[in-house]
Write a protein that binds this DNA or RNA. Structure first.
Lengths: 194, 194
DNA sequence: CCTTTAAGTCATCGAACGCTGACTTGAGGG
DNA sequence: CCCTCAAGTCAGCGTTCGATGACTTAAAGG
């Protein structure tokens, strides 16, 4: 018998929900699945979160922008690539959270959440680096590339990208980012992951 | 009372299924939804297709590679961009079929289908144009960009990309494609859509 | 030890799901 | 005209869904 601990139980539910929603999407995940995974009675989901939908919202409210802005500007794109390619997203089923969210994108709420996250985390940061008048468009084109790389890597599992590491992508990242932003960009972070 | 016509009824079901599956995904679409949209009794779905899953497979078996290879090599990427940005995918809910399929990508069958379609339609065609030893990787990186553009345009609906047309993208497409493939590529087709 | 209170359990609701088999109806050929 | 057979309809099966309210149990304070 596990100790009775509201916060711990809530956390277990959130963790299992994050994994299921990321891997299977909102509709293919039942509250009983989540309850079973976390070995918690399904009723508690409604006591703690109110509804399946609110559990979904809380489970997918990621903070991606975390340390993306720490470091030299010319390595910003390289840092973004690293979060897509090298970062361990085990808690989200092995995929980047934004990529996993696409699986639930039939719901308008999820699309809005995706838009806010993409614009806030990627487009805004990149636009500040872009030169010229269509900076917005070029920032979005670069964001599109990052999202596309994440999808082909983990969802579609295209052969070369699925096994690529950041080092393999670095020269191409540097070339494309430099070209799109109109200023010199590095393809790899100066100090690789510890 | 509509005329009794097996083939016409089958086609109506397929059309409605294509739209629903694209817009809402596999799990959020019920056979009763499809039957209601096409004004056909739901039972006929099982008589004509056997199961919901087989209807899904038949409805999403697109032929994307159609006329992608017709035309000069240096315009291949531009033609691909046009199918993502300008082509009218009303029958798939306004999104590129591959983008719509991502919504059902929790099922391994769909992921396999996606992989085959992406590799066959995009990567293979692009790899033949790429120079150098990591041609495969660069072809996949360019494919990732195209997929990402489709997603940010229609699913995420990022502001600049959502309203962009091929002409706005042409210079950037030319630059990135030329850089990634290592040979001169055009950003727009010579003769724009009729 | 005993009361209180919140954490966790249980039985079950009504609706929707994929799917089936028996039935009805309408158009074409003799 | 009427028989046939396929196209289309209908009632309902067994299951699972999200959600609810009444219940039980364990831990903490006096």
């Amino acid at each position: 018998m596990r100790k009775r601990d509201r916060e711990a139980t809530r956390a277990r539910l959130l963790e299992a929900a994050r994994l299921r929603f990321a891997r299977d999407g909102y509709d293919a995940t039942s509250v009983r699945d989540i309850a079973g995974d976390s070995d918690v009675d399904a009723t508690l989901i409604f006591r703690y979160f109110g509804s399946k939908k609110r559990l979904f919202e809380e489970a997918t409210a990621a903070d991606l922008a975390a340390d993306l802005l720490d470091g030299p500007n010319e390595e910003l794109v390289a840092r973004m690539v690293r979060t897509v390619v090298d970062q361990d997203w085990t808690e989200y089923g092995g995929e980047h959270p934004l990529v996993a969210l696409l699986r639930s994108s039939a719901h308008e709420d999820t699309r809005r959440h995706l838009r806010e996250e993409v614009c806030h985390t990627y487009v805004n940061a990149l636009r500040n680096l872009a030169e010229g008048d269509d900076a917005e468009l070029r920032a979005e084109l670069l964001s599109a590339w990052l999202v596309g790389i994440g999808i082909l890597r983990s969802v579609v599992a295209t052969p070369a990208l699925a096994r690529a590491r950041t080092a393999d992508l670095a020269p191409h990242v540097a070339a494309v980012a430099t070209g799109l932003l109109g200023r010199p960009m590095s393809g790899a972070v100066d100090r690789p992951e510890a």
